[in-house]
C-alpha cells in the first residue's frame, strides 16, 4: 500500500505496452484478408453477367455487361465529355455546398448558443425542413430562372438542413462539465467559444458537413434532371431519352466515384482537427 509498490503499478513501461497493444492489433486488423470478401459478390455477379451475355444466354441490351459499360466510360473519357460533365456537376455541388454549409454553420451556431435565437429561428426552420426540398424546384425556377442559380439554390437548401441541425445539436450537447472548467479559469465568452466550444463541436461538425455533402450530391441529380445541357445528371437523362443504358450506368459510376472522392477529401482536410478522437469514429 505504500509508495514504491504503487508507483510501480504506473510505470511507464506498462503504460507504453498498454498503448502499443491496441496499435498492433489495429495494424493486424488492417491486413485482415476478410476485408477482400466484400469484393467477392459484386465481382462474381459482374463476371456471371459478362459470361451470360457473351455466351448468348442474355441479350444485354437493357442491362449492358460490364465490359460495355467500361468501354462507354472510356469513350466518354477519351472525347473529354466525361470531364466536362463531371466538372460541371462538381462545380454545382461545390457552390451549393459552400453556400448551404456556410448558412447552416452560422445559423446552427447562433441557434445552438443562444436560447433567444433558438426560440426565434428553430420553429420556422423545422417547419421548412418538413417540406421535401424537391418541392421547391418550381418556385426556384420561377424566381431564379432555369439556369445555374436555381440549381445551386436547390443544392444549397439540401446541404443547409443537415449542417444546421448538426451544428446546433453539437453545441447544445457540449459537456457542461468541460464548460465549467473554462469558468474556473475565468475564460471570457470569446475564449470559452474558441478554447472549449469550438474544439468540442468539431467532430460532430465534420459529420454534419459530410452528410450535407452527401445530400448535395443527391440534389445535384435532381437539379440536373430539371433541364441541363451539361453535367452527369444530363448524361443520365440523355441516356434514358436515347435508350443508352450503358451511358446511364457509366454516369452512375462516375457519380459514385465523384461522391466518394469529395467525401474523402473532406475527411482528409478535417482529419488534423479531430485527431484526438477515439478511432472508432474514423470508420463511419
Amino acid at each position: 500500500m505504500t509508495g514504491p509498490a504503487t508507483s510501480q503499478a504506473w510505470s511507464s513501461h506498462e503504460g507504453a505496452a498498454a498503448l502499443a497493444a491496441p496499435a498492433l492489433a489495429e495494424k493486424r486488423r488492417a491486413f485482415d484478408g476478410r476485408i477482400l470478401l466484400g469484393f467477392l459478390l459484386p465481382i462474381a455477379v459482374a463476371l456471371l453477367w459478362e459470361a451470360a451475355v457473351s455466351f448468348g444466354l442474355a441479350e444485354g441490351r437493357l442491362v449492358p455487361p460490364p465490359s460495355r459499360i467500361v468501354a462507354t466510360l472510356w469513350a466518354l473519357a477519351q472525347t473529354g465529355e466525361l470531364w466536362t460533365h463531371a466538372w460541371m456537376t462538381l462545380w454545382r455541388v461545390l457552390v451549393g455546398f459552400v453556400i448551404g454549409a456556410a448558412a447552416g454553420i452560422v445559423l446552427g451556431a447562433l441557434s445552438g448558443s443562444s436560447k433567444t435565437v433558438r426560440h426565434l429561428l428553430d420553429p420556422t426552420l423545422q417547419a421548412l425542413r418538413a417540406i421535401p426540398s424537391i418541392a421547391w424546384v418550381p418556385l426556384f425556377i420561377l424566381w431564379l430562372g432555369i439556369f445555374e442559380a436555381s440549381k445551386v439554390a436547390l443544392i444549397a437548401v439540401g446541404v443547409f438542413f443537415p449542417v444546421y441541425l448538426g451544428i446546433a445539436g453539437a453545441i447544445l450537447s457540449v459537456d457542461r462539465k468541460l464548460v465549467e472548467v473554462g469558468h474556473v479559469f475565468r475564460l471570457s465568452r470569446l475564449q470559452l467559444a474558441r478554447r472549449i466550444l469550438l474544439p468540442a463541436v468539431l467532430p460532430e461538425a465534420v459529420i454534419a458537413l459530410r452528410s450535407g455533402l452527401g445530400l448535395g450530391f443527391m440534389f445535384v441529380v435532381a437539379a440536373e434532371f430539371m433541364g441541363a445541357s451539361e453535367g452527369l445528371g444530363y448524361l443520365l437523362v440523355d441516356g434514358q431519352q436515347m435508350g443508352k443504358p450503358d451511358q446511364i450506368l457509366a454516369a452512375i459510376i462516375a457519380f459514385a466515384l465523384l461522391g466518394k472522392i469529395a467525401d474523402s477529401l473532406l475527411v482528409a482536410a478535417t482529419k488534423p482537427l479531430v485527431r484526438w478522437q477515439d478511432t472508432v469514429r474514423e470508420r463511419l
Binding site: K177, E180, A200
Partner: peptide
C-alpha cells in the same frame, strides 16, 4: 484566480 478546484471526474479536455 487564487482558488483552484479538482472535480470528482478528471474533466480533462480530450483535444489537448
Amino acid at each position: 484566480p487564487a482558488v483552484g478546484i479538482v472535480f470528482q471526474e478528471p474533466r480533462l479536455l480530450p483535444w489537448l
